[in-house]
Nucleic acid binder design. Structure first.
Lengths: 127, 127
DNA sequence: TTCGTTAGATGCAACTTGCACCTAGGTGTC
DNA sequence: GACACCTAGGTGCAAGTTGCATCTAACGAA
């Protein structure tokens, strides 16, 4: 589960899925739009993540130079990459729900410290 | 934002808030119950996180040896720690929502690839 | 005295990250 | 031509983080 921290990986996989194919420099612009945290994504991290994804077989790439400007490394999802995105979505879905639940339980404990025990008992632990 | 990765920090802060005070070994048992990911928490990570929290002024500790067995380092939240927990809850709340939204948008793109452009346009980007 | 449990901690290799920097193709302009 | 700037993809390195193994030590039970 590389790069869980900033969630660069799933967003890259999704962007590639949506666009069909793209390259690092272009993806770096769209990452901000879909970033899951406020933390900025370093270009270095982006390029390294793409190479890592390729090394793991989730994307493949080819050079594209017919457009003016320096050559681009065009990335696209592999079949494994689609499955990996699917797995990521399951993980993020689960995390999202656990997180929301945690926030609920913790907020109750903060606002009404004298009644939190009962509330935790009613709502149960995290999923 | 240390230890965002496993979310050890906010859960520790919450557990201390709820119990009033506790120590590493005891906390390690409850961490699993409230863990936000399936990844297991190393005891080493737990102890190091507690020391880091103390270094940053979010918790304070004192030795407790009146109980049989080796002395425990009893931790409790500081006022700064309560504020920090509050900030964490805001961050997690935001992340949780962004994540849920991302999963929604991405799932639509996966299931109905031919219509995803319109759906993305309707639902907008992430929060 | 030896073993198991509780409790806290460290050493180290491997990995990740952020920052600075580099290479290189192309365009505009003086 | 000389230069600045934009696009595009990277690398080097110091600093930080993590996981695993290991260590110390107090106490109770056999």
């Amino acid at each position: 589960m590389g790069n869980l921290y900033r969630f660069v990986e799933p967003v890259l996989l999704f962007l590639l899925k949506r666009k069909g194919h793209s390259y690092g420099y272009e993806l770096s612009g769209q990452l901000t739009e879909f970033a899951l945290t406020d933390a900025e994504i370093e270009a270095a991290a982006l390029y390294r993540t793409l190479r890592q994804l390729e090394k793991n077989g989730f994307v493949r790439s080819e050079w594209d130079s017919g457009h003016g400007g320096p050559a681009r490394r065009l990335y696209m999802l592999t079949e494994q990459g689609e499955e990996h995105l699917d797995e990521w979505l399951a993980v993020l879905d689960h995390m999202s729900k656990s997180m929301a639940h945690f926030v609920d339980v913790a907020r109750v404990a903060l606002v009404e410290p004298e009644t939190h025990e009962e509330v935790v008992a009613v709502t149960g632990g995290l999923g």
